[in-house]
């Protein structure tokens, strides 16, 4: 199998356009792992379109800036001990 890796320009999940290259395949040119700098979604370029392309990414899995802002803390950070 050979592949031409197209560099992604937006996050499939939240649409943010600032991405970072997290890892390149040990076999040169096979795939790359990218990460969104906002929602931290990670994907490998050779995954199916439903995981790698914004226009094919399922709406029910999409995330917005509000979703990230409002996400609950798990677990809640406790108060510091007084002593």
């Amino acid at each position: 199998m050979t592949a031409t890796i197209a560099t992604p320009t937006e996050c499939p999940r939240c649409g943010y356009e600032s991405l970072q290259l997290l890892y390149s395949s040990p076999v040169a040119g096979a795939w790359e792992v990218h990460q969104c700098r906002r929602c931290l979604y990670c994907w490998r370029t050779c995954e199916p379109d439903r995981r790698t392309r914004r226009d094919a990414y399922p709406d029910s899995f999409k995330m917005t800036a509000e979703d990230i802002r409002d996400a609950p803390e798990v677990p809640t950070i406790p108060p510091l001990r007084q002593s």
Partner: peptide, 10 residues
């Protein structure tokens, strides 16, 4: 590797 479609990562 990723497991399920909607997982946020690996």
């Amino acid at each position: 590797i990723r497991l399920n479609d909607g997982d946020g990562g690996f």
